[in-house]
């Protein structure tokens, strides 16, 4: 206490050290859960065969005249994410208005809406896919439904933030010109939010195309299904071509979607 000024300035430093040491301890504790033994059993032979597979992708698999090939798998993945995004982009609109603070006078309404969206958002799409597989059977449709419902959580949140940021001026102008409530919504609110809505939907589409590649791992259609087969049969050259296909598809989608988003806003 006699040297209050220096000790005060040293306090954050001590706190940082404590936080740092704590972090390192937590990190070591976390690492202790990983079992590193057993890795050595896989000799250089396995690694080299994997390398061999990745450097020599199975080009024949890209297109097979009959049956399952890479292009058809990727197409199905693309379709799942298009439909999933489409469904959520519309289903989330009522949720977005529910969660927007400026759309209702009672605060509890928007708070409850925000909580529901949080729960939807943290509920993994993989689990949703499994539930929908039970309902409609394995396949792409279950994947579409899983993505469609799961994406509501994030999209509705972003939409509601857009609605909360709406400029009230045009609303006032429309009311003063004798517009009805729906006309006010149509001509003052929608033109302000629609471009942002589309932009967010495209952004979600970029996320969904990635998600759609893994849905197949649980049987919900798309490129994940053949990937799982290739992985379990250790067909590394096929794994290589499938991963290459995914990287190319996702990159192309990112480029197109990013270009569209820049044009819209």
């Amino acid at each position: 206490m006699n040297q209050s000024v220096p000790s005060h300035s040293r306090l954050p430093l001590i706190r940082n050290w404590i936080v740092g040491i704590l972090l390192i301890l937590i990190f070591i504790w976390s690492l202790s859960a990983m079992k590193f033994d057993g890795i050595q059993e896989y000799g250089a032979q396995v690694v080299s065969s994997i390398w061999e597979g990745f450097t020599h992708p199975d080009w024949d698999y890209v297109y097979l005249p009959d049956g399952e090939d890479l292009l058809r798998g990727l197409l199905e993945t693309l379709i799942i994410s298009i439909l999933g995004t489409f469904i959520s982009a519309f289903l989330c609109i009522p949720f977005a208005f529910w969660a927007s603070a400026n759309m209702s006078r009672i605060q509890a309404v928007s708070i409850s809406g925000k909580f529901v969206l949080t729960v939807i958002r943290v509920f993994p799409e993989i689990i949703m896919a499994i539930l929908f597989i039970v309902a409609v059977g394995p396949g792409a449709f279950a994947g579409v439904l899983a993505l469609g419902i799961h994406s509501i959580g994030m999209l509705a949140k972003l939409y509601s933030e857009t609605i909360e940021a709406v400029d009230n001026g045009p609303r006032e102008a429309l009311i003063s010109s004798g517009a009805s409530k729906l006309q006010v919504l149509r001509f003052a609110v929608l033109p302000q939010v629609i471009p942002q809505f589309i932009s967010y939907a495209l952004y979600r589409f970029e996320i969904n195309i990635r998600s759609a590649t893994v849905l197949g791992l649980v049987g919900a259609g798309g490129i994940g299904v053949p990937l799982l087969f290739a992985l379990s049969s250790r067909n590394w050259s096929r794994v290589g071509i499938i991963l290459l296909g995914i990287v190319i598809l996702v990159t192309i989608i990112d480029l197109i979607s990013g270009w569209l988003r820049r044009r819209i806003i």
Partner: peptide, 14 residues
Amino acid sequence: RRDIGMIFQSFNLV
């Protein structure tokens, strides 16, 4: 209201 036009300080355009 239709017969009364209004102009605002902050323009209130979309």
